[in-house]
Each structure stands twice: as C-alpha cells, then as structure tokens.
C-alpha cells in the first residue's frame, strides 16, 4: 500500500486481487444484490485511492481497508434509509432462494440456505461483527481496533453472536421453512 501511496498505482491491483472478493461477499450478505455489492466494493477502492495520502503505514493495511469498508456500508445504509428503501426480510428470502450454492446433497444445500437466512435475521451489528470476523486477513485484534474496544470484548461478542445465529437457525429449522 505504501507503494500505491507513493504513486505506484498498479500495486493496487494486487491488493484488489487479495481482498476484493472477500469484500464483495461481505457486502452481498448485507444487500443480497450483486450489482450493488460490486458498486460498494468499487466505492471502497475509490476511497483507498482518494485517501491514500492519509495511510500512515504504521498500522496494517487490512485494518485501514476494512475501516473504509465499514464506512462505505454505513453510508450506504444511511442513504437507503433516507430513500425509504425497505430492508424487508421477506424480500431477501426470495433472493436467497436464487442463490447458487455449490451443488451437493439437497439437505446440505438447505442447511446452508437456512444458515444464510438465519444470518440475515441477526441485528446489523451482530451480523457485521460475524462477517468481519470471516473476512480474509482480519484478526480479532483488528476488529477490536476498529470498534475501539478490547480484544477480549470482541471475542465475547463474537461468541454470543454465533450462539444467537445458532438459535435463529434452529428456530427456522423448527418452523420447517420450505426452500
């Protein structure tokens, strides 16, 4: 990243290759919209370029990147709220059914879809936290830095989020949701 800062813009491609897909997945799980997710990823890298002069190089690039990513997400949500766009769960469930999942046993497929649905039902903060922890190259220490809390705190929150996820999953399973 320091090379990008000093003008070697092509280096950014390497960073994009490394983190782009992961970021896309992150946004997709919030928006369930491929095009929008692509745009959001582009926004992030736009900001990386725009603010490259502010990258001090004393911290990890990944932390800085995901910090920007969180801001992009937050800004998008604010905009969506203002525009009155619904974040209706039912709508999202429809989209979910179209998700292409690596074709294996139907049961496993259902399992995965239920998991995704459960994820969608979590609160924004819990969902964000879990998805952040899933992102490539992110450690709990990094998340702690981003949230301005202790690493221990992050771990506890992740633990609780995982359990919440499990509970929702079981509820959905019990309801016998038809995919």
């Amino acid at each position: 990243m320091l090379k990008v800062k000093s003008g070697d813009l092509d280096k950014l491609s390497l960073l994009f290759k490394r983190y782009g897909k992961s970021l896309y997945g992150f946004y997709f799980r919030f928006t369930r919209n491929a095009e929008l997710s692509e745009d959001l990823v582009q926004d992030v890298f736009e900001r990386v370029l725009k603010y490259r002069h502010t990258f001090r190089g004393d911290g990890k690039f990944v932390t800085w990147l995901y910090h920007l990513a969180r801001n992009v997400l937050a800004d998008h949500i604010k905009k969506a709220k203002r525009a009155g766009i619904t974040t209706d769960i039912d709508e999202k469930q429809e989209v979910l059914a179209d998700l292409t999942v690596p074709g294996e046993a139907k049961q496993k497929e259902e399992h995965l879809l239920l998991m995704e649905m459960a994820l969608d039902q979590l609160s924004h903060d819990k969902k964000e936290l879990l998805l952040m922890s899933k992102l490539q190259g992110v450690k709990y220490k990094d998340i702690a830095e981003m949230h301005n809390c202790t690493e221990a705190n992050v771990k506890v929150r992740v633990f609780r989020a995982i359990n919440d996820l499990r509970e929702v999953f079981l509820k959905l399973q019990a309801k016998g949701i038809n995919i």
């Binding site: 897909k21 992961s22 896309y24 692509e38 690596p102 998991m115």
Partner: peptide
C-alpha cells in the same frame, strides 16, 4: 458459519 461459501462475484 465459517464454511459458508463466499458469494461469487
């Protein structure tokens, strides 16, 4: 959760 496949762009 951690083995959920990543959405393909």
């Amino acid at each position: 959760f951690h083995t959920l496949p990543d959405p393909e762009p």
